[in-house]
């Protein structure tokens, strides 16, 4: 074997690998297109602009949570408490608005509080050394319980809330014909995209998931970075909560139950590895859209919500199987 033979072979392998990587990045997009096509064939009104905008609005809440979850999963962690954070912070904001605090300030406080709750997860995981699954499982129960205590188990709704223009606007308003939640989702996406792919914070996030020990020895402040990532997850969850209370005109103590599963599903469908270190936030956006299209499409076609759950589960399994085959 001559060296040039070997080199040429390596070059070819590298090229093949790059092509494969590019294609695999497109996998979720392809799945979304196929899904949309099938739905359109079954019911052409899927493509109705109103339906599409409606779909996007439905996606926005899961999208926001899943963006935060992407950072968490990239580090190899998981945040099960997102739904409970959503419930607790949105109840807090609703209560404040009801008692006369200006809407914007009340919501901002709710979101900051969400960041603090996320920070608590971060501290339990970094300083406390708890496994992310266990830590966030525990805080999920605590935050949910706290919500019931705080609301006494009753929904919070009031005339003040419903009379507030901003309150209405956040969840139900339009801006140049586009639903406000969709705009919030897209702006959040852009900011987090820049944070993940264009700034050092993103490199650190990937490094933590790739090999935490090597990241530490390379001078990355592992605990600090990780804590911030859980703060981001908390912020995104409570931001989603603000949209939800506006859409429902009330804060429900059981709001957000099971949202963690949809968010994790969106991240995984988007091609991010649960082992950490590999994935993209664009994939998560697509993953959230796939779940949204499934829900929307099955409603349009008239599949009962019981079957919808089964179909969603099957889609996730197919995605994972394809992903595994790719790696082999």
């Amino acid at each position: 074997m001559t060296n040039t033979d070997r080199e040429q072979k390596v070059v070819k392998e590298v090229k093949d690998k790059k092509v494969l990587q590019k294609l695999s990045g497109l996998g979720p997009v392809l799945a979304l297109i196929v899904l949309a096509l099938i739905t359109t064939v079954m019911n052409p009104s899927f493509l109705d602009p109103n339906n599409l905008l409606n779909l996007l609005r439905q996606v926005s809440i899961n999208g926001l949570i899943a963006f935060g979850m992407t950072f968490v999963i990239l580090t190899g962690g998981i945040d099960l408490s997102v739904g409970a954070i959503l419930a607790l912070t949105s109840a807090l904001s609703a209560m404040m608005i009801t008692s006369g605090v200006p809407t914007l300030i009340a919501m901002l406080i709710g979101i900051i509080f969400g960041g603090l709750l996320g920070g608590l997860n971060g501290l339990l995981i970094t300083k406390g050394g708890a496994a992310p699954f266990i830590a966030s499982l525990a805080t999920m129960t605590i935050f949910r319980g706290a919500t019931y205590v705080f609301t006494d188990g009753n929904p919070i709704t009031s005339k003040v809330m419903n009379d507030s223009f901003i309150f209405q606007f956040i969840g139900r308003g339009y801006f140049f014909g586009i639903p406000v939640p969709v705009i919030i989702m897209l702006i959040s996406f852009l900011i987090l995209y820049m944070l993940l792919h264009k700034m050092t914070f993103g490199r650190k996030t990937y490094a933590l998931g790739g090999n935490e020990k090597a990241a530490f020895v390379s001078g990355i402040k592992v605990n600090l970075t990780k804590t911030w990532i859980y703060v981001i997850s908390g912020i995104m969850s409570s931001a989603a909560g603000m949209i939800l209370i506006s859409r429902l005109s009330s804060a429900q103590p059981d709001a957000g139950t099971g949202f963690e599963m949809d968010a994790i599903a969106a991240v995984v469908l988007g091609g991010t590895s649960l082992a950490g270190g590999r994935g993209r936030i664009f994939g998560t956006l697509i993953g959230a859209l796939i779940i949204g299209t499934l829900n929307n499409g099955m409603n349009l076609i008239g599949i009962s919500s019981f079957y919808q759950q089964i179909v969603k589960g099957i889609v996730i399994i197919i995605a994972v199987l394809i992903d595994r085959r790719k790696k082999v």
């Binding site: 490199r203 990937y206 490094a207 790739g210 090999n211 020990k213 090597a214 020895v217 270190g277």
Partner: peptide
């Protein structure tokens, strides 16, 4: 502790 093996040469060097 030295490398992230499944990260690129470039990503490792800049850490």
């Amino acid at each position: 502790e030295g490398l992230i093996l499944d990260f690129s040469v470039s990503e490792n060097i800049i850490m």
